[in-house]
């Protein structure tokens, strides 16, 4: 059995760990609430954007390359992961899903390319020698639109220049604080636009100069905003996942401290009992 002092030092070190995980849990909780606010601030923009874009796209004379499905020779995967770990299965779930899809869909590396947002995803794809077209790391915890603008417009440009024929996003969708799920969303070509135009068709717009010109400007912006929306979603998931992971770690640390304290007390008692019995037997030996 371990000595009293060994157990005591184990208890102390577990307590230290617990302090850290607890602090990280609280930090993540506050970041999560900020991330939720950011996602909420984005909603009016995305709703309006969706409404206008789908109305313009619904008018029949408007066509644009981004609305047209073409034969897929090369697929782009936009993978959003975190820069840091300690978030449970957050990164691994996304990466595993992407990897499985790639293995399943493609025979050679010519048929796809990866756009990696986040260090974990980038490192994984690099290590496995998968093609990375673009990468961005070091995104802040509360990203602004300006932070993602460049990579988003580059991704859209790749599609427009026919470097890729479709663009699929993989990220963790935020359901609530305890549940996030890996989502894949086909971003380009924009095919599901006309789905919910029934709501406000009554206002038919004048287009200045014309619908086609507007689509040319609007659709890239729309796609960029979708990417930004996914990033906000993913960031909220990241903080939620980290919060959960750290809460579990804190719980485990508590459990371990309890166990160790029990062992410590047992050992202490055993030592006392032994000492008493030694004294008693010593006294008895003197009397006889």
């Amino acid at each position: 059995m371990a000595s009293l002092r060994d157990i005591q030092s184990k208890i102390n070190s577990t307590k230290k760990t617990k302090q850290i995980t607890k602090a990280m849990q609280m930090v993540s909780a506050s970041k999560l609430s900020r991330a939720e606010q950011n996602a909420k601030a984005f909603v009016p923009y995305s709703e309006k954007m969706q409404e206008v874009v789908s109305q313009i796209a619904a008018s029949d004379d408007a066509t644009h390359p981004m609305l047209q499905t073409r034969a897929v020779k090369k697929t782009g995967y936009l993978v959003i992961t975190a820069d840091r770990g300690l978030a449970g299965g957050y990164n691994n779930n996304v990466i595993r899903e992407v990897y499985r899809t790639i293995q399943h869909q493609h025979a050679s590396t010519d048929e796809y390319t990866v756009i990696a947002a986040g260090r974990f995803g980038r490192d994984f794809f690099k290590k496995n020698n998968l093609p990375i077209a673009k990468e961005i790391i070091g995104l802040p915890d509360q990203p602004d639109f300006a932070d993602i603008k460049q990579i988003a417009s580059e991704a859209v440009e790749m599609f427009l220049e026919a470097e890729i024929d479709e663009l699929v996003m993989f990220y963790n969708h935020y359901n609530n604080a305890i549940s996030q799920e890996v989502t894949s969303q086909k971003l380009l070509p924009l095919t599901d636009l006309s789905a919910d135009t029934g709501r406000s068709v009554q206002s038919m717009y004048e287009f200045e100069p014309n619908a086609e010109e507007i689509l040319k400007i609007l659709l890239p912006q729309y796609a960029e905003s979708l990417i930004y929306g996914a990033l906000l979603d993913a960031k909220a998931s990241e903080h939620a996942a980290r919060m959960t992971a750290m809460r579990n770690a804190t719980d485990n640390a508590n459990e371990r401290i309890d166990d160790l304290t029990l062992t410590y007390n047992r050992a202490r008692q055993a030592a006392i009992t032994q000492e008493i019995s030694e004294i008693v037997s010593g006294a008895a030996a003197q009397q006889s």
Binding site: V52, I56, Y205, E206, F207, E208, P209, E213, I214, I217
Partner: peptide
């Protein structure tokens, strides 16, 4: 706008312009 100045007063017809 992309092709010139626009002034919008109340009651304007529905319009979209970059």
């Amino acid at each position: 706008a992309e092709n010139g100045e626009l002034g919008i007063l109340p009651g304007h017809i529905p319009l979209v312009a970059p």
